[in-house]
Amino acid sequence: MITTTDLTKVYHSRGREVTALDGVNLHVRPGEVFGVIGQSGAGKSTLIRCVNLLERPTSGTVTVDGTDLTALAGRGKRAGRPLREARTRIGMIFQHFNLLSARTVQGNIELPLEILGLTRRERARKALDLLDLVGLADKARAYPTQLSGGQKQRVGIARALAGDPKVLLSDEATSALDPETTRSVLQLLRDLNRQLGLTVLLITHEMDVVKTVCDSAALMRDGRIVESGVVSDLLATPGSTLAAELFPLTGTAGTGRTLVDITFHGGSAGRPVISQLARDHDIDVSILGAAMDTVGDAQVGRMRIELPGRPEDNDRALAFLRAQGLTVEIPGAAATPGVALSKEGA
């Protein structure tokens, strides 16, 4: 639905060149919620703004729903009619909502409909339908300043949906909201994604957002995508940075002991694997840290345990864990045979 190829953006400021995007290849499939995560300055904001050409990429192409937007944009700096028409079919929501304070809630939702050239009656009907969809039917005549942050973002979402887009771009849409409001807005995005078959590309710096709504995710660093894929696949990939960041584990091993990171996904999450390991192999297992969550409707978790003895003494225990369908990693042992072994096991 959204494909970028070799997308590059170089800014020139006072004779210095800053590369914000360094050959980004992104592929968002129809109907999925795709999250791009990264720290500020990683280039994710530039990336999402390049998708609807608010920012002109220096090179590379952007294709949305089969249309090559970079070709539509032409050479001029201003957005010509073909690009503007394409944009009416791409919704966008923003961190700071960007609602017009001079207009009512209904007036804000009608703005894109005015751009589309609908009549007053059509606009009003559509706006009220959309307000109903986002659960704000009673706020049509309110002004944005009278709304809470969560309500403002719902208006933003209603406005973004006015042109019946197939794609919704979300630029840190929940970053200015408190955790509870964030959850309800994400839930709304999830519902819209399912009900309308809306493809959502969101950028965020919050791992929770990825956990809560994303089917797929990409990790951005220094203008590049360092890892990307379906979230549940990433979690099953040993050495995945994204998995480690989604479920951060801490704790270090005592001398002569072995640290093991285990990732549970799918059916294995429900089984008493650790107690079985301790009983059957007569091993004292210490649990140093664990994190469990629901990712894309599946129970997923990671756990860091400590086993007595060095990695090579624990071959049987590790083999047992792998046999249970778990992803097993030995952290801090990148170059040792132990890790090579665990990668084969996966």
Binding site: R78, E85, A86, R87, H96, N98, L100, S101, I115
Partner: peptide
Amino acid sequence: VDHGLVEAAQAMGGGTWTVVLKVLLPQSL
């Protein structure tokens, strides 16, 4: 006028006239 509002209007497919008449002037009235 907050540049974010201009960007929002552009993202909806608005051109320069839309931005001036529907965003810049009403917001700074």
